[in-house]
Structure formats: C-alpha cells, structure tokens
Nucleic acid binder design. Structure first.
Length: 428
RNA sequence: GGCGCGGUGGCCGAGUGGUUAGGCAGAGGCCUGCAAAGCCUCGUACAGCGGUUCGAAUCCGCUCCGCGCCUCCA
C-alpha cells in the first residue's frame, strides 16, 4: 500500500504486512461539541486502520484530546465554571458523539493534561540542547537553531513573520513550549520555570512518543494543522533527536459554507446534530464519496445525496439472502492501496450492488462501518399486523382501505412493498 | 504578497496517453389496482489559449477562477 506523504509531496510505500504501522492523529480541542469537520480525521483514520488490519497489518492508533488551551479557558469563564470541568464535559461529549459513528475506537486516546511530566521532560531536553530557552516564566523554541524548520509546510523560514508577537521572544518566529500561568487561568502545573501549562504543539510531540515511541510510521490530522502545528511538532521532536513520524497524512477540509444551513446553525453543524438529522450512515457515505485529501462540501444537498445512497444500499438487502460468491477483494484493494481512494471504492460498492454480488457488497460495507445497511431490520409486530391487514384488503380489492393502511405503516416509519410472496417492510 | 492544492456533464465525484467510471437528480419505457423497489434506454463532460504527440481530460507552458495555510482552526 502507498500513501501520500505531505513531507515529501509524493506517494510512498508503507512497510509490508504485518508492519507494524503506528499512527498518531491530532484529535480535537474540547471546549464544545465537536462539529462534523472534526469528525473527518477521526473517520478517515479509523477507516485506514480497518483497512490495514484487514490486510494483515499490526496497527496501533493513537488519537489525542487537547484538553487545556485558551479556548477552553475562555469558554469556561463565559460559563462561570472551572475550565477542567468544562474540558471534562466536552471530552465526554466527544467520546459519546464519535462512538455513535460505530467505527470502533483508537487504541489510545490520551489527554494533554495526563501527559504533563512527559511534556516537561521533553522541554527540558530541548533547553539542554539549546533549542529552547526560558524567558519570563515561558519557554520558547528557538526556530533559528533548527535548520530543517519549514520543511513540512514548504515555507522558507526567512519569509516567516511572527507567530504570536511577544517581547519575551528572541525571534518573532519562535513559539511557546510552556506558558506561564496568567491571572484568569485556573488550571496550571508546576515546572522548573514556574507554574504554567504546555503550549499547543509540545503536547503532541510528548503524547506521540509516550504511546508510540520515538519513531512511528504515520502522523495524521487536518490539512489546516500542517502549519504551524505539525511543523512545530516536527521541529520539537526531530530537534530532540527523535526520528518522529516517517509519513505525514493530511485530510482535506469539510466545508460548511452552504447557504441554508449556515443561517439557522451559524455555519457550524455539530456532529451531534448531523447524527440526529441524517444518521450515521449518511455522514459516513458523504465522506466515503470523496478522496480523503479533497475538500468536501457539507451542504444540505450533498448530505441528502448521501442519504439517498443509504437507501439504495439498504434496499438491495431487503428480503435477500446474502450471496455466497467469492469476495472481489482485489478490486477494492486496487483502490484503497493507492493512497486510500475511498471515492473509487464507493464506485466499486455500487458496481457490486448492481451486479448482485451481495457477499462482496456486505463485506465492503462492513469494512467502512456500514454493515448495518446489509442487515435488514425486522419490523415490529404492530407494523407487520398492519401489513397483513393491507394484504387481505388488497386481496378483497378494497384499495381505499389498502392505501389507508399503507399510510398508517408510513406513519410508523416503514415502507411497504408488494412482492410476489406478499409484502416487504423497509425502514424509512 | 509567500507556500500548497484544485478547476470533469444539472449536482457530487473517479480517471496520469488511445476502451462506458460511479452516484444523485431528470426524461422515456417494462412491471404495478396505485405505489415503492428493481430492470432497460437517453444526456456524449473534461476552465481558456498555445505546445508535445499518430492520438491528451490525462504530459509541458501561459492566462483566468476557486480553495487551504501563512496570529493555537480537524
């Protein structure tokens, strides 16, 4: 299998199975319910793990939670509750909402606040190596001392302007590893430089190493993180002498620009709302239909199209015994082994459906967490009873009564279809 | 301005030199008490301009347009 490496800007082969393939993904900052865009890297990398494991790989997936940061302080202050409490609540929401996607969970989901000793130790190492310096209770990374800086984002360090202007910095490009506690911040830890909390980037360097070791195969996350976050992670870890990630995989953005939706929901759709409104399968199918590196527009129209596909696949299995043909695994592998092209894979699922290759289809859907579409659910007895009555009404040619019953069945959330053997009930 | 990505039929979206992608929507038909589902048929796209080539959506150049990042946003 090969994957596109953002660092080298070309596709590169992964080691042969069983690997191992160790993956670190940057998860969300938890200060409110996550939005559907946050769900994209979560979905993409869980899918990738499923595919790698199906191919005999030994995979370790770590996806962190950033639970200390300015936004969390701000949100907590606005609500008048301790920031640790707000972060804990939002972390719980994150787990609940993503759990509903039904893709399983990463092997480890570390919190930044549980990694403080490792973070402090790593900063001390950087200070010892003269790649970092303490200044007024803060500690900064010395960009000028790391020649590789800019290699990931492709930016020339000389062209860079201040990341966050501060009088405490030697160089405006330097970035914070440790920040001294400010009066309005209610969460802090003691350190050799005084009370404070970690900068945004160092936590990921520390967590990745803690759970995957100094060298691992894949580092993932949203494309928007490439700079400065990933550039800075790379500088910290490589600067400290670790090989760190060999391949950087960035997913494209989910765009929430659509007309109708933005008005009512302020341009942000939470994963929670999306799940309630369109269901997990539609969200997954929308993401499946685009290559992971491409942007995806999350519009009313787009998600409705995805939902139509949910029905298409579900319909295929209604009243059907699963096929027993040999699964065309190779054809799916062709698509997925080449930079994980799920859009191509989705086309193949449709192909299997139209050719009646139900065993292949069921296997493919299951791979992407869509196995539920291959298992027609059983209608409740009340609904079946209505359908029986309608069948008798039709036999008596009392079509008015039959139509009335069909309407009643629809009210109960089911669709009735007439087939040679009687009827079928399909959830709607 | 800098770095990077992209512009495919009504919409979404594959496709790295020569064969029908696929889905959604739409039109017609078969089937049906009416439906639904399914099946059949139909649209002949590749931003523009040059170039390379027997042949380009696919390679090269330029132009136009869009997007991401460049003060912590997955």
């Amino acid at each position: 299998m090969q994957l596109y490496n953002s660092l080298t800007r070309r596709k590169e082969p992964l080691p042969e199975p069983p690997g191992p393939i160790r993956i670190y993904v940057c998860g969300p900052t938890v200060y409110q319910r996550i939005h559907v865009g946050n769900a994209r890297p979560y979905v993409v990398f869980l899918w990738l793990r499923r595919w790698l494991e199906a191919g005999g790989y030994d995979v370790a997936l770590v996806e962190n939670v950033t639970d200390v940061n300015d936004k969390i302080y701000d949100a907590a202050r606005a609500e008048g509750i301790p920031s640790a409490e707000l972060a804990a609540r939002a972390t719980r929401w994150y787990f609940e909402d993503t759990e509903e996607l039904g893709l399983g969970r990463p092997d480890v989901e570390p919190l930044a606040t549980e990694t403080i000793p490792e973070i402090v130790a790593l900063i001390e190492e950087l200070v010892d190596r003269r790649l970092a310096y303490a200044s007024g209770g803060d500690v900064y990374f010395r960009v000028a001392a790391f020649p590789e800086y800019g290699s990931l984002s492709g930016a020339n360090p000389d062209d860079m302007v201040a990341q966050e202007p501060s009088d405490l910095k030697e160089d405006p490009r330097d970035f914070a590893l440790w920040k001294a506690t400010k009066p309005h911040e209610d969460t802090s830890w003691s350190s050799p430089w005084g009370d404070g909390r970690p900068g945004w980037h160092i936590e990921c360097s520390a967590m990745a190493e803690k759970h995957l070791g100094p060298q691992f195969e894949i580092h993932g996350g949203g494309l928007d993180l490439r700079f400065p976050h990933h550039e800075n992670e790379l500088a910290q870890s490589r600067g400290a002498g670790r090989e760190f990630a060999r391949l950087w995989a960035h997913n494209g953005m989910l765009e929430l620009a659509s007309e109708k939706m933005s008005k009512s929901l302020g341009n942000i759709v939470s994963l929670r709302d999306a799940l309630d409104r369109w269901g997990r399968e539609a969200i997954l199918l929308l993401l499946l239909g685009a290559h992971y590196r491409s942007p995806v527009e999350f519009s009313e129209r787009a998600i409705e199209q995805a939902r139509a596909q949910v029905e298409t696949f579900r319909d295929h299995f209604v009243g059907l015994e699963h096929g027993a043909e040999v699964v065309e695994r190779e054809r799916l592998a062709e698509a997925l082994d080449d930079d994980f092209n799920t859009a191509d894979a989705l086309a193949l699922l449709h192909d299997w459906r139209s050719r009646g290759l139900s065993a292949s289809l069921a296997w493919g859907l299951e791979l992407f967490g869509l196995g539920s579409l291959g298992r027609a659910s059983e209608a409740p007895d009340e609904v079946k009873e209505l359908a029986e009555r309608r069948l008798r009404a039709r036999a008596e040619r009392e079509f008015g009564e039959a139509d009335r019953l069909r309407h009643e069945i629809e009210q109960a959330g089911w669709q009735v279809r007439d087939v040679a053997e009687g009827f079928q009930l399909v959830p709607r």
